[in-house]
Nucleic acid binder design. Structure first.
Lengths: 249, 249
DNA sequence: TTACATTTGTTCGTATGTATA
DNA sequence: TTATACATACGAACAAATGTA
C-alpha cells in the first residue's frame, strides 16, 4: 500500500492533479507498457487513497491528452502512438468529393547536399550544414498527384541512406520514429499557388503551366525542434487540400 | 420552469449531452449574448432538472470548445468572439515574409439570386432557396490580393441590403453578429490551385492565366449550422495562406 | 444462447475549499 | 466581512459494454 498523496503534498495543487502526476510517474517508470491495461479504477483509487471520482478526473485529463485510452467494459489502456492513422494525421490531400485514401509513394531522388538558405532558416541550421534531400512522388487511386521535396538535417538523421528510405516498411514519419527516434508531433504549413515547371509537369503527367498548389511545411518534434522541411506541389484538378477545421462545436 | 430533459428524451444519449444541446439551443436563441454571464450552476441545474455534477459536465464540454468561459468566483460567460483578434482568426493571408496586416475591403457586387447547386449543398439549403451573393476585393498594403465571393442564406440574413453591407462599420463577421445575431464560431476550409480567368485577372491586376490559390470555406455557427459559403481567390505572388499549426505541444 | 462477473460510464447529492465583488 | 459562484472531493447507485463460463 502506498502513502496517501495528500500526506506528501498537503495543499496547493488539487488532489486529482497529484494523482495525474503519480500516474505519469508510474507510466514513465514503465509500470505499464504501451497497449497494456492499467489496473481498474477502484484498486487505483485505493492505492492512491482517493475516491473513484477523483481518480476518474485524473484519468479524464490523461485521456484528453491521448496518454490513456478508456474502453467501457474492458479497461483503461496506455495509448499506442504507432497506429497508421496517427501517421496519416498530417496527410491532408483528399479527392474533391471528400473521399480519403492512402497514397502510394515512389522515391525519385535521394541526395546529401549543403542546406540552402530557406532550408537553413526553417530548420534552424548553421551555414554549411549538410542535409538529406529526398524527392518523392505520391499517387492516389493510381494516378500521380503530388511531388514532395523533403529536407532533413543530417545531424538528426545520421546514418540515413537511400536504401533505408526505399526499403522502409512503413510511413515516413513512422520511419523517423523507429529508425532515428524522432517523433513528429506537429506541423506548420503554408500554401501558395504556382505554375508547374517542366520537371513537375513531367512527373505529374500534366502540361507545363498547370496551376499547382504549393504546400510548404515544417514538421516539429518535442520542444518545437524542427526536424523536416518539406515542399509539396499538388495537382488539384481532382484533389484538394483539406484545411483543419477551426473551432467547430 | 422548463420540462425536465429526461422526460423528453428518455434514454439513448447521456443526460449531460442533452443538457449541452439545450444550452447550445439557448445560446443560438440568443438567450444570453456574447460576453454575458449565464445563470449560476445551481439555478441552471434546477431549470434542466439535473444535478450540479451533470450540469457541470455539460459546461465542461462547452468550455473545452471555447463556447463558454468559466471564472471561479465570478460566473460562466458566453465566450466573446468579437475581439479583432478573433475576427481575424479566420483571415489567414500573410505576406511571404510572415508579416501580418489588416486588409481593406471594396464591395464589388451585391446580388440576390437562387442558390447554385454547390452553395445549396454547402449551406444545406432546399432547391430554389434565395441567397445573397457578395463579391469583395481585399487589398493588403494598398495592392489587391484576393477576390472573395460570399454566399449567404436569405433565411438567416433577412433584411440584408447592399447599403448595409457597404456601410457596416466593422468586420464582416462582426456585422453578422451585430445585425443578424449570427455568430461565426468555426470554419472548414479547403484549398486548390486555379488559373485566373479574365474577370479575376482584371480585378487583381495580373495577367490572365496567373496561378491563384482558391480557398473554399464554410463558416459555421452553433450546432454546426452553416451560415456562409465563401470562395476566395488569392494572388500568392507576394502573399501566402498560413495554415493552422497542427498539434504542437 | 444464456447467465454472470468485471469494468467503465453516468448521475446523484453533499460537503468543503477558493476566488471574486 | 459577507455573500455569491465556481472548484474540488467524496461515495453511492445504477446503466452499459465486454468477455467468459
Amino acid at each position: 500500500m502506498n502513502t496517501p498523496l495528500s500526506a506528501l503534498s498537503p495543499t496547493g495543487t488539487p488532489l486529482y492533479q497529484q494523482v495525474k502526476q503519480a500516474l505519469l510517474s508510474a507510466l514513465a517508470a514503465g509500470e505499464w507498457k504501451q497497449g497494456e491495461a492499467i489496473p481498474p479504477e477502484k484498486p487505483l483509487a485505493e492505492r492512491f487513497g482517493v475516491s473513484i471520482g477523483t481518480l476518474r478526473k485524473a484519468i479524464d485529463d490523461l485521456t484528453a491528452e491521448n496518454i490513456l485510452v478508456r474502453h467501457q467494459g474492458r479497461g483503461t489502456f496506455v495509448a499506442k502512438h504507432e497506429h497508421n492513422q496517427h501517421f496519416f494525421r498530417f496527410f491532408r490531400i483528399v479527392r474533391q468529393d471528400g473521399e480519403k485514401s492512402y497514397p502510394t509513394t515512389e522515391l525519385l531522388r535521394f541526395r546529401r547536399i549543403s542546406a540552402g538558405e530557406e532550408a537553413r532558416e526553417k530548420l534552424l541550421l548553421a551555414p554549411g550544414s549538410k542535409v538529406f534531400e529526398i524527392t518523392n512522388r505520391l499517387s492516389l487511386h493510381g494516378s500521380p498527384v503530388l511531388i514532395d521535396t523533403l529536407t532533413l538535417p543530417e545531424a538528426l538523421f545520421s546514418g540515413m541512406t537511400e536504401k533505408l528510405v526505399r526499403e522502409r516498411p512503413s510511413t515516413l514519419y513512422r520511419f523517423y520514429q523507429d529508425s532515428f527516434g524522432i517523433n513528429v508531433i506537429g506541423t506548420a504549413e503554408n500554401a501558395r499557388a504556382t505554375l508547374a515547371d517542366e520537371d513537375h509537369a513531367d512527373l505529374l503527367g500534366v502540361p507545363a503551366g498547370t496551376a499547382l498548389l504549393e504546400l510548404r511545411r515544417v514538421a516539429y518534434s518535442y520542444n518545437q525542434q524542427p526536424v523536416e522541411w518539406r515542399i509539396s506541389r499538388v495537382n488539384t484538378e481532382q484533389y484538394e487540400y483539406m484545411g483543419q477545421e477551426h473551432n467547430r462545436s
